[in-house]
Each structure stands twice: as C-alpha cells, then as structure tokens.
Design a protein around this nucleic acid. Structure first.
Lengths: 227, 227
DNA sequence: GTCTATAAGAGGATAGAC
DNA sequence: GTCTATCCTCTTATAGAC
C-alpha cells in the first residue's frame, strides 16, 4: 500500500531540517519573518504529499492527513486554510524538490547534454516511486478542466516543453543536430516518453526497467538526430 | 474487487442497440437470457462513460449519473448493483468500442503494418477527446493499487504490450526489421509515446497536433529499425 | 422497473473555548 | 496554535411501497 515508503523519510529531511527543538525553530522563524511552526507545516506538507500521491486529490481527506500529522482537522486548517491551498503548497514543494536535482526550466545547453540530463533524471526518479506517483496521479486527475491542479499542470508542461525545445534548437543552430529536426515536436515526444513510461512502470513495476528503456530510447533518438 | 473479469462482450452489444423499439428489445432480451431494459442500461452506460471521463471515478457520483439518465439513484442501482459494477461495465464498453476500430490484441502482422495501424488509431482518437480522456483519467487514478480499475489497467497494458511486441518480433524474424532490435523495449516505448502525447494533448489541445507528432515519431522509428 | 425514504457515514469548513 | 463541537452537504447503499 505505502508505495512511497522509502521516499518519505528523505523528503522529510529536505523539507523539515530534522529534529530541531521546537523553540529554536520558532525563534529562527520569527527572525526570518516566517510564520511560526515551520516544522509543523513541513511535516503536514510531507504527509500530504504522500497521501495525494497514493489516493489522488479527490481520494484524500483532510482528516486522514491530520491524523497522520498528529493533530485534528481543525488544527490542520489553521496552517492551510483549505484543501486546495494545501494541494498548491504540495505542488510547489514537489517542484522545488525537482529543482534541487535538475532545473528543468534551465537544462544544459545543446541537444545531447540536455537529453543526457533527462536520462539522469529518469534514473533518479526510478528510485523515487512516491514522487513519481504523486505527479502521475495528479496530472491524470488534472486533465479535467475544473480540477484545482489543472492550471498548474498546463503551465508545467508549457515550461518543460519550451525548455527542451530551446535546448534542441540550439543544437540544430550550432550544427550539433540535423538541420531538418523539428525541435518542438521532438521535445514533446521526449516528454511524452517520460510520462508514458512512468505510467507503465507504476502500474506494473516488475514488468519494466523504466530507466533502461528510456536510455535506449534516447540513444536511438540521438543516433537519429545527430548531424 | 475483480474489475477485469465478467460482463465483457454482452454489455457491448447491449449498448450498440440504439433506438430500437423497447418492446422488441425486451423480447429479444428474454430470448437470449438478458435482463430487460437494454435501452435504459445503454443510456446509463453512455452517460456514466462521459461522467467518469470528465471527473474520474472518485469525482463522479451516482446521483449525478442518475439525474442525467432521468431516474433516481435507487433506480440506477437496480441496473448496476454498485458503483464499481457500473465502472466495470463502462470499461468493458470502452474496450469494445476500441475493438470495433482495431483489435489491439490482434494487430496486423509485421513491424511496419502494426505501427501504421497504431498511427491510424491515434488519428482516430484525435477526433474522440471524450474517450481518450476517460482512458487517461481512469488509468492515472488506477495507478493506486487499491483502485477498482487497477487490475483492469494492468491487464490491459500487458495485453497491449505483448501484442505489439509480438508483431515487432515477427518483423525481426522475417528480416523486415533489424535483428538487434529489442521488440519488448520498443513496444513499451510506442505505448508510452501514445499515452504521453494524449496527456499533453488533453491538457492543452491547442498546443499540439497529437496525430502529427505521433506520425513523425513512428516515421523516425521506422527509419531506425528497418533492416 | 422505478419510486420514496432513510440509514449510515464521510467530506470540508467554521465558531469559539483554552 | 490547537482543541472540541458542530453544521451542512454529499456520498453509497438498502428497505419496502407501488
């Protein structure tokens, strides 16, 4: 059931900063102009991230998150005024975690470096089923136009798409890649391949080595588009 | 909890019934051992298909479906004993609609014919956003292990995967495709590309010509794997 | 085959005490 | 900052009349 079990402890560290005494956290929080209770917030966020990933937005209840965070639902709503606000915070958190590894809006320049960076990202993701699932489940839900994450998802794809497209275009312009390559279509394809493989991998992890299949794809693609 | 089992082809035929007089339908139903009220059932199924596609399984209520089908929730539950049973019937319906166009478990033999058949399927799908969305939303939700459609989705991918893999393998064996092609990995990639492009297309239809991008991909792939 | 009525519960959100 | 208590709505499913 707990698909993201391994990921959780690591993510907690990234956000919470460990088992610091609450008083110290509070004091520093005030100095830096934060609201107090950062550790609490971080704990809630990490639990929410797991729950949204495991059951989707609609399938997750505030009560369940509150229970796991060891406070009441009303207490939770003190930190996040609504379920939707909590979701937004979780999505921001996920984006910032990605950014630590690889700034998707600023890929290495040139075709081959950019594509190899993506291979590294997929290899990284293959060790983080929880995070991948959060993304896959929410993006699927968000296809619905009135879903609270719809705008987030659309924006994310536009950003990612232009990022890859730009890197590829630079490759064609520098002569690294074939001049007749369509950078936009190619970029969309690469993103689609990442998402599609994630889906198959999550549904049936034993059936596929996601990172290996993606690497094979990129190798083939490079052989095809190199000048 | 078994979603992938029973009901299958019977439900499909019931739905195809259309605007036949109710009395005739009922009489034939009795002869063939169906429950009566086929037209009603079909109407419910088609509405449920729309609703599940628009809001996902969790986001859809029986009351809403009943309202659109012009009966009460209790009346609806006379035809389908539970929400899950209704979902199962909808999934069977969707599969049978696909089958009308292209039997995915029995693709044309050989690499190029099979891949070209998939291009035709994607072109067809690009004109059916509702059906594509049902699939995308439910598959995303179904990543969760305890989702009622989880087994259905996993089974569907296994089937589809072996189907494409088989066609490609025949291609390598007949000398049509390069001997060093990995049919399994390649098959998984093709499926992933279809799913990933669907996702981007649904989120932002104006941003992409799904069929064109997929065709480009397949052309490039063919150039790469042909012997 | 369809209805009304209702059980039995979970959902999100708010008010006010401490 | 967290609690209890409560509200109101929505959910799935069942019972029994017609």
């Amino acid at each position: 059931m707990d698909v993201s079990g391994t990921a959780s402890s690591e993510t907690a560290k990234q956000v919470a900063g460990g088992a610091e005494p609450a008083a110290a956290t509070r004091a520093r929080g005030r100095r830096q102009g934060y609201a107090t209770g950062d550790a609490r917030r971080a704990r809630i966020l990490n639990i929410a991230l797991q729950e949204f990933g495991e059951n989707g937005y609609r399938g997750t209840s505030l009560a369940r998150i509150a229970e796991r965070a060891e406070l009441t639902q009303a207490g939770l709503l003190h930190h996040f005024r609504s379920k939707q606000e909590l979701l937004t915070a979780v999505l921001d958190l996920r984006d910032s975690m990605d950014a630590e590894r690889l700034d998707l809006s600023n890929l290495p320049d040139g075709g081959e470096p950019a594509l190899r960076a993506l291979v590294a990202l997929v290899e990284h993701n293959a060790r983080k089923p929880g995070i991948v699932q959060l993304f896959t489940v929410l993006t699927g839900e968000a296809v619905t136009t009135d879903h609270p994450a719809h705008a987030w998802a659309r924006e994310r794809y536009r950003l990612l798409s232009t990022s890859i497209t730009t890197a590829l275009r630079h490759g064609t312009e520098s002569g690294e890649l074939r001049a007749d390559l369509d950078p936009e279509a190619c970029g969309r394809q690469v993103i689609a391949m990442m998402d599609g493989l994630q889906l198959q991998w999550l549904l049936d992890p034993e059936q596929m080595d996601m990172a290996a299949v993606f690497r094979t794809y990129i190798e083939g693609l490079l052989g095809q588009i190199r000048a």
